[in-house]
């Protein structure tokens, strides 16, 4: 049922990635790589991860570690596999017919692709905020309470407390506290996205995956989300996929640069943007392609 949308994110013709006539940058993937390792106290340890949709490889041999309670940005041109990578971390790719992975993804030392893994439990520990705000057609309260309810929490008082805490964490409480039972679809785009973040926080996750959370928002709303991410990093690990290099530079602590399904460079953000070790990274961040 989701084949179409998911596949479109992968099958963008690779030829379009490099714009013509800027500089004859080779379209091939650089042989050079730089991956900072080891990382202190990693949440995720990704080992030789490859992802295929049918026969097409979307990710090739990715290995790096994601630090705890930090913001890790994943940047790269369209179709480089950043969203697909994000969806490997909570196994949302499983929902796509014909997807298949190789390698291992360890979450706190535990292989999330092991047969003993409870996928629904994993998705509560590692939850995803989508690019386009996707509130359910329900009330604000019911949106936030959705995850806890699916875990079996029924007591009204407990739910009330979770809803309030999550909305406060997402800096939305003051704007909606008087209309918790109004439809979520009446909120503005930025409010909807913060609602989706509150909804994700309500299941008490360890890791928040954010798939270009600001790309559908205006600059003011995007700024609010960025501030929010910085404040959330105190308690949560955040993996942020973004198109926007300024955003990555502003909010993240570590940055991974993906190109055509390969991890080209992974470094502390300050280092990656000031002293990129790989030529291809430099070309990308200086806008020579991408």
């Amino acid at each position: 049922m989701t084949v179409r949308s998911a596949r479109s994110s992968v099958t963008v013709p690779l030829g379009e990635v490099a714009p013509p006539a800027v500089e004859p940058t080779p379209m091939r993937v650089s042989e050079e790589r730089y991956v900072l390792t080891p990382i202190p106290d990693p949440v995720f340890d990704i080992q030789h991860l490859s992802l295929y949709y049918g026969e097409k490889p979307a990710l090739v041999d990715i290995s790096f570690q994601i630090p705890r309670r930090q913001i890790t940005a994943v940047i790269g041109p369209s179709g480089c596999g950043k969203s697909s990578f994000l969806r490997c971390l909570n196994r949302l790719n499983d929902l796509i017919d014909g997807s298949r992975i190789e390698g291992r993804v360890l979450l706190d030392g535990q292989d999330i692709y092991a047969p003993t893994m409870d996928v629904n439990d994993l998705r509560r520990r590692v939850t995803l905020v989508f690019q386009k705000p996707n509130p359910f057609p329900k009330s604000i309260y019911d949106n936030v309470a959705f995850g806890p309810r699916m875990m079996g929490i029924r007591q009204r008082a407990v739910l009330d407390e979770i809803v309030e805490r999550s909305l406060r964490q997402a800096a939305l409480w003051d704007e909606v506290k008087d209309r918790l039972h109004a439809s979520a679809l009446q909120l503005s785009g930025g409010q909807q996205q913060r609602l989706c973040i509150a909804r994700a926080l309500a299941v008490d996750p360890e890791v928040l995956l954010m798939d270009e959370p600001c790309s559908a928002l205006d600059p003011i709303a995007a700024g609010k989300i960025e501030d929010l991410m910085v404040s959330l990093k105190e308690n949560y690990t955040i993996v942020l996929v973004t198109h926007n290099m300024q955003q990555a530079a502003r909010v993240s602590d570590y940055t991974a640069f993906f190109y055509m399904g390969h991890l080209i460079e992974y470094q502390r953000t300050t280092d990656l943007f000031t002293h990129p070790r790989v030529r291809q990274t430099e070309d990308y961040i200086t806008g020579r392609f991408g």
């Binding site: 049922m1 929902l95 994993l122 995850g147 909804r199």
Partner: peptide
Amino acid sequence: IEPEIRHGARALGATQWQ
């Protein structure tokens, strides 16, 4: 119903039936 809605629920740990 947009696929994002379905995936949104699954990403919060809801089963398919839920």
